[in-house]
Design a protein around this nucleic acid. Structure first.
Length: 282
DNA sequence: GCCCAGGGCTATG
DNA sequence: CATAGCCATGGG
């Protein structure tokens, strides 16, 4: 077992804020499956314990090489954001594999996170290679070009998303996503949105979580509701206006604000739902 | 049966 | 530009 000292890091909110889907909470820590590797990781205060993976991979994936305090400072002292920061301080933006991230969020449209996780697990079982971690038998995420067959994908439960994934799998070839990642935000986003099934929201997720674009600001139903309520007097607002506002209000690291607010509002909603009537949301 | 879920595409005003 | 209906599926 290995150990590193970490500051301004919260493993729990980082993993459980909906950026990544392939992790399992154990009695102690988490089993994470990413980049063809399954590894164990556990945080106790400022100690991060891990096994089955190199230290540099941990630092890279969890973005521990980034100046978190400087990023938080750059977001401003917004009242709503301050609350989210206080509750989830240390939530980092992950640095995922672009292919895994893209396919994962192609699975995500109009699905609850619990179900997305199930679907992706089935996808890996059907197309991925078996790998091991200790006595755990798990499946790696299938590589580029290995996820084909709309019917097979539909049988997994992907529904209308099956065709998108099948087609994207045919289009993407070695090095393509890395070339996209090397381009500036606007250009990279346009390229991603040229892929079938990839619209504004999925593109922003891929850019933020796997392509070093901290200005990307994914707008899903939770963010839309929250932003409208907190910044637009509860009025219906287009994604375009929310994007413009977010970029101006939060700055070049707006994506961090998005992830903090998303996690904050979703957690709050969950608690509200269990205590009250779920049908009364909005 | 109803509603909603980390949406995207297409056809219309 | 904005909106409506549609696309499949599962869980509360």
């Amino acid at each position: 077992m290995n150990r590193i000292h970490v500051e301004d890091f919260d493993l729990c909110s980082t993993l459980e804020s909906g950026q990544i889907f392939r992790y399992v909470r154990l009695s102690e820590g988490y089993l994470v499956n990413h980049r063809r590797r399954a590894f164990w990781v556990c945080q106790k205060g400022q100690n991060l314990f891990f096994d089955g993976v190199e230290e540099r991979c941990i630092l890279h994936l969890f973005g521990l090489d980034r100046d978190y305090r400087a990023i938080m400072r750059s977001l401003g002292d917004d009242r709503t954001l301050k609350t989210a920061m206080r509750l989830h301080w240390g939530l980092r933006i992950l640095r995922q594999d672009p292919w895994e991230c893209l396919i994962s969020f192609l699975c995500s449209s109009t699905k609850p996170i619990r179900h997305i996780r199930v679907i992706i697990e089935r996808l890996c079982r059907a197309f991925g290679e078996e790998i091991t971690f200790g006595n755990h038998q798990v499946y790696a995420f299938p590589g580029e070009g290995t996820i084909s067959g709309s019917d097979r994908l539909r049988a997994i439960g992907l529904g209308f998303r099956a065709r998108y994934i099948h087609e994207v799998n045919q289009i993407i070839e070695g090095g393509y996503l890395e070339r996209v990642a090397a381009k500036p935000y606007g250009e990279a986003k346009a390229l991603l949105m040229g892929l079938p099934g990839v619209g504004d929201k999925v593109a922003d997720c891929v850019l933020l979580f796997s392509m070093e674009c901290p200005e990307a600001f994914p707008i899903d139903t939770w963010i839309r509701r929250g932003m409208e309520r907190s910044y637009f007097r509860g009025e219906r607002t287009s994604a375009k206006k929310i994007h413009t506002f977010a970029r101006k209000h939060f700055g070049p690291y707006a994506g961090y604000a998005q992830q903090l607010l998303y996690h904050y509002w979703r957690e709050k909603g969950r608690n509200f739902d269990t205590k009250h009537d779920p049908s009364r949301r909005r």
